[in-house]
Design a protein around this nucleic acid. Structure first.
Lengths: 183, 183
DNA sequence: GGTTGCATGTAAATGGTTACATGATTGT
DNA sequence: ACAATCATGTAACCATTTACATGCAACC
């Protein structure tokens, strides 16, 4: 999904500036779903206006650069729904955390311990923020996605909490216990 | 995590050719964890050899180009552990599926239904393959990561199975039921 | 006085995917 | 016949990240 479609989706949620769209991808509806940086958002918004898929109104502000508020047009909404109808590309995941974990046996147990604790804390924090946001006035689909995210993060946090000690014991066990058993 | 570290990790698992490394990221230990394409693997392997982090042996084959089998060197192992010790970058997820789902209320229920069914089938298929692979001779950390992946996919599949009908009813309900209730 | 948040945009550099180029074997 | 698997590698293209450029307000 290209930056243009991503911005179109953001504008469908509500009128916004480039800066505000970035926040939607960082902390808002689209966090944990997709990424978008200034370097991709601003050029995409310009192209969207060029193609008549969005319109732009400059809102003068005191002591700050004009805020450019973008709105999706009818043509833009059509383009969005068109893009949404295409078969989704497979999810792309890049997790340094999991890659590191695979080689846990090469690392000091203290690092693994910290790594996993930090991950659990991150999940718990994300879960809290996902529960706190009020979706009662959002469409059922937004609540559905929120629920899915929470179910997945809860499962991950619980697995890590339950299985962490077992891993740490096994990692050390692989080095220490066998030689003892041979005594 | 750059392509070089990714390849170093693959070679730590076992000697391999570029072609085999790609398979590790598609169906092997690293599937669902990270991506790697030929265009990033082959140049990375060349650089790894240049820097003395890997060595390469050409295995002549009949009727096929020589298979170049790469091995990690001691220096390479040091470089890998060094990279593994750095704080992991945050996970990067790009899910067209979730992005589309957020706008479920703009789409025909039949499309949502299909989309979710396909997703459930994908999770079930992945879960089957993740259970089938024999990890009894792999380090505990590999089993731990496998278990985490399965816990997460199971949670996602179960959520979708349980909640799908509710979503479809709500999407249609938003259009149909309220007018009935007002009768 | 330093950091964070607001607010926009561009340019350079990096990095990665896709497509191309080649070609035999095996299975449908 | 055609697709898939095996096998390597390059080049063009695309995208993203990072840094630069600017500047005020609010908070600590």
């Amino acid at each position: 999904m290209d930056a243009k479609t991503l911005c179109l989706g953001a504008l469908q949620v509500g009128d916004a500036s480039g800066y505000e769209i970035k926040k939607l991808f960082e902390e808002g509806v689209f966090s944990h779903i997709h990424e978008a940086s200034f370097g991709s958002i601003y050029p995409a918004l310009t192209r969207l206006v060029d193609e008549g898929l969005a319109s732009c109104t400059a809102m003068p502000q005191d002591k700050r650069p004009d805020k450019k508020v973008y709105s999706i047009t009818d043509k833009g909404r059509e383009a969005l729904v068109g893009a949404l109808r295409l078969a989704p590309a497979p999810d792309k995941v890049r997790s340094d955390f999991l890659f590191i974990l695979v080689f846990g046996h090469l690392l000091p147990a203290s690092q693994l311990d910290r790594l996993i604790d930090q991950r659990i804390a991150w999940y718990r924090d994300s879960l809290r923020r996902m529960s706190e946001c009020d979706l009662s006035h959002k469409p059922a689909s937004a609540r559905f996605v929120n629920g899915l995210g929470r179910a997945v993060y809860r499962a991950a946090a619980e697995y890590l909490e339950l299985q962490k000690e077992g891993l740490l014991a096994n990692i050390e066990g692989a080095m220490v216990v066998p030689s003892r058993a041979a005594e």
